[in-house]
Design a protein around this nucleic acid. Structure first.
Lengths: 332, 332
DNA sequence: TTGTATGCGTTATCAG
DNA sequence: CTGATAACGCATACAA
């Protein structure tokens, strides 16, 4: 069933049918109704490929994530999908992992699908997880369609960034720990991504400003996995720390489990703060204090930017930051 | 840059370019190389819309989920995406929520995008979450393309089901609890979906077979949310239970938090078992015992089915079950 | 092995 | 307000 069939049955031209389908105002009510009825009874749906061929768009947004099996990312995608769906867009989802090569391949695949815009979720797309440290493939994509980063920052035309103020949040958390008398704060991180660097920097500056000695050994790079962290944490007893601040909740929980296992009291002996304010925080006892980096807010701001960019209505800030908030539970 | 441009530059016909692009064997090596070089230098990419128009496919698979912000579902999608991407498919993701109306709308939107197959993740698509109890919209979709259910069971042509053996798992868990001396086992569930029903049935039959009285009040329907469960659980003290078996980890954790708060010892006073074996299990203390329903396995089996159905190679079982496994941690 | 011609189902332009 | 017709870019049957 195509537009010709409908036209023939309705005794009109395909142009008229097309107008009816596309809600063109220049169709008489009578004709419109007649055509609409026939479309209804015969169950006609326009062929998106043919539409796409002419319009060069299929009303589709690409969302690329390192992995969807991550609480922070999946929340972001959930939020994005909801708004975009309401706007009539479909989502093409890609999970690229963290390797540059696969990121490029995925973006290329999406571009070839003629998406209307690309959303990159996670700071891995703005950072230096791999040796190349190269984000030129993103700039290249931005030559064809607008690119939106969530929690990443890349300069460039047609690239729009929405991110949490991780530097500030990290600075404030560290400052609060210091105010509470903590002097040897372990900083756990699992990547060299843009946001990880921001967090690290905030941590370091807070120490500096408070006149606390910065001990490089206290910054520990490790895998973001509860069991891994827990099992290797015994290697760091010698550090004699009184607080742990992690760039992700899972690492904080791994540390907490180790500390509890060796009989430490949380937070009396060691304060612990995680990041992302994920559901995990509610599972532990004591419940984990964590930085809420406002995924939903960042996501909805991203959609807002996207809307105005695609609608060509007015200007859009290249960079859009949202404030985080430390959620104090029982580990601080 | 289209096929005509390339043809002109290479001094061949568009047919030849097309053949080169599609790896047709009937092109001389010399011509192939020449065309390939030009394609490379000019950065030509076939227009998927034009391809789709002729072939009526864009090599795209639709994945519909109630929500992607769920650990079980996002793991399933992660697994699906990986395999499908390798096979050259792109993913169109939809988050429908649990209401029938939205499910239908989403499926319709996907069908209009001419996806090659539809994967429905979660038993909500096979159950009776809403009054209508109607899955005819799925059968209708199956008239156009193959539909694959993950953790759902619907009879019908062109519908293929892959699910965990929830009935058996639930039966076995309940039996194990009984063997350990538990007699009043609370069963927590949050939906009337297919798999929830299976679990409930397994629970009931295990009681029956063990000669334990089945107490309807012990089957409690509630929202699948840690805080909610925790806060309403005080209403059930009168039930005098000695075990809690939940159809999702979050509910189990909510119950556990309440029990710990009122001073119960886990598992001495009350045994607790969750479902899905999610990351949450690792966060609690004591760590939560939970049924591993093998998401990754179910997902990869689904992809396998999809592959043979789309490849029209041989028969595919309409129903494919995989065994679960109780992961014993510290709450049982 | 290569080229020609046609169809795929729309949208858009232009003329009526 | 309506209709005829030309793109849109590719795959493919058929011809050479």
């Amino acid at each position: 069933m195509n537009i010709y069939d409908i036209a023939q049955i309705a005794n009109v031209s395909i142009a008229t049918v097309s107008r009816v389908v596309n809600n063109s105002p220049k169709v008489s009510e009578k004709t419109r109704k007649k055509v609409l009825d026939i479309i209804e009874t015969y169950g006609y749906t326009p062929n998106v490929f043919a539409q796409g061929l002419g319009l060069n768009t299929m009303h589709t947004i690409g969302i690329l994530v390192p992995t969807i099996a991550d609480l922070y990312i999946s929340r972001a995608v959930a939020c994005l999908e909801e708004s975009l769906h309401e706007m009539g867009y479909d989502i093409i989802l890609g999970c690229s992992g963290y390797a540059a090569k696969q990121k490029e391949i995925h973006i290329e695949m999406m571009l070839s699908k003629r998406i209307d815009a690309l959303i990159l979720v996670g700071s891995t797309y703005a950072g230096s997880d791999d040796e190349t440290h190269n984000t030129s493939y993103i700039s290249k994509a931005a030559e064809e369609i607008p690119v939106f980063l969530i929690n990443g920052l890349i300069e460039g035309k047609n690239i729009y960034c929405n991110a949490a103020e991780d530097y500030r949040a990290s600075y404030e958390v560290t400052t609060e720990l210091i105010k509470r008398g903590r002097k040897r704060i372990v900083f756990l991180f699992d990547s060299r991504s843009y946001s990880a660097n921001q967090k690290k920097s905030g941590y370091e500056h807070a120490l500096l400003d408070a006149g606390i000695e910065f001990v490089p050994e206290l910054e520990i790079f490790m895998k973001n996995d509860i069991d891994t962290v827990r099992s290797i944490f015994c290697n760091y007893d010698y550090l004699d720390y009184d607080a742990v601040f992690a760039t992700d909740d899972a690492m904080a929980i791994g540390a907490m489990k180790y500390l509890k296992a060796i009989g430490k009291n949380i937070p009396e002996d060691v304060s612990i703060v995680g990041y992302n304010n994920s559901m995990f925080c509610k599972c532990t006892s004591p419940e984990l204090s964590s930085v809420d980096n406002k995924v939903e807010l960042v996501a909805s701001q991203t959609v807002k930017s996207l809307k105005t960019v695609l609608g060509k209505e007015g200007n859009v800030l290249h960079k859009n930051m949202v404030a985080c908030e430390l959620v104090r539970r029982a580990t601080i």
